[in-house]
Design a protein around this nucleic acid. Structure first.
Length: 311
DNA sequence: CGGCAAATAT
DNA sequence: TATATTTGCC
């Protein structure tokens, strides 16, 4: 019995399709042209773009020019981030400026993404943890205030829920016992202690492991995806992981996560900013998270997130 | 802009 | 169906 159990898993891994197997498939399904135009989002394909982006950004390194680290806690940060350097791509097929009236696909909050979110909130502090600030701090391309806002809402509920349970005590002791379906996503990311009680700051307002990275990769719009798609093709191994992020992440109570992919929708807008004053070309460094062992994470290396974006 | 409730998609 | 995410309103 035990042998079977142990073997089934081992076999499972071996039974997995080899990169070569998947590669052709991707090529067949996602052609360069398609990748360029890729706004394809029927249901489970948007992940392709996401994974692709992740893969592409995967090439980021750990630079540390000690740039503008974590913002102290300004009354209102007017730090407008804009990584807009290269303007158009002007690649052959011209006339591509989507993202204008297109609707974005559902944003998939992956553990990594959420981690970033939590980190941002932690750095900002509950008081400054407002959607806009968080969004800016996250510097995630494609992320909108609405996305953060809605997620923040849920996040708060999750925290509140946790507080209620923590008081009751029930069973077992350890601190981790709340695993509601919704909690799973949140549970994947460590929650700063002081988050639960705003009236008791430990000592520092922030202690985030934020790792500012040089803006080494600032793709833009569809070009971004093109690169991403290419990366995806180059890394078929990832394909096996991103092909299903619609429902939820399959992670055991204390297993490990493996879905460092963010759903990257089409570009948003780069020409006109609503209230954004002349954004300076500040190569705002994106923040990458390091390998962190969340509760339950054991020796599982997480992929780094990626780039920053502009607004 | 920020928060909350409802609607919708998966 | 339930959950996640989006959208609208205040």
């Amino acid at each position: 019995m035990r042998e079977d159990d142990s073997n089934w898993f081992a076999r499972w891994e071996e039974e997995l399709p080899s990169p070569d197997e998947l590669m052709p498939i991707t090529q067949t399904l996602i052609t360069p042209d398609l990748a360029l135009a890729f706004d394809i989002r029927n249901s489970t394909n948007s992940s392709a773009a996401a994974a692709a982006v992740a893969a592409a950004s995967n090439s980021l390194h750990q630079n540390q020019p000690v740039p503008p680290p974590p913002p102290p806690l300004p009354t209102h940060n007017s730090s407008e981030f804009a990584a807009d350097s290269s303007a158009e791509l002007g690649s052959g097929t011209g006339g591509d400026e989507p993202a204008r009236t297109l609707k974005r696909p559902r944003l998939v909050w992956t553990p990594q993404l959420h981690k970033r979110f939590v980190d941002a909130v932690a750095h900002l502090g509950i008081k400054n943890a407002v959607p806009k600030t968080i969004m800016q701090l996250m510097s995630v391309d494609g992320l909108t205030r609405e996305n953060v806002a809605s997620h923040l809402q849920k996040y708060r509920l999750y925290l509140k829920r946790m507080q209620g349970l923590s008081s009751g005590g029930g069973g077992g002791g350890g601190g981790v016992g709340v695993d509601a379906a919704t909690d799973h996503l949140f549970a994947s990311s460590p929650v700063p202690a002081h988050f639960l009680h705003p009236g008791r700051p430990p000592n520092s307002d922030h202690f985030l492991p934020f790792v500012p990275v040089s803006a080494l990769q600032h793709h833009h719009h569809q070009q971004q995806m093109a690169v991403a798609a290419a990366a995806a093709v180059a890394h078929p191994q990832l394909q096996g992981q991103y092909h299903r992020q619609m429902g939820h992440f399959g992670s055991p109570p204390n297993g490990q996560f493996d879905h460092p992919f963010l759903a990257r929708p089409a570009a948003q807008q780069q020409a006109v900013h609503r209230m954004g004053p002349p954004v300076h070309n500040a190569p705002v460094p994106g923040y990458v998270e390091d390998l962190e062992s969340a509760n339950g994470n054991a020796g599982r290396k997480v992929l780094t997130l990626f780039p920053t974006g502009d607004d």
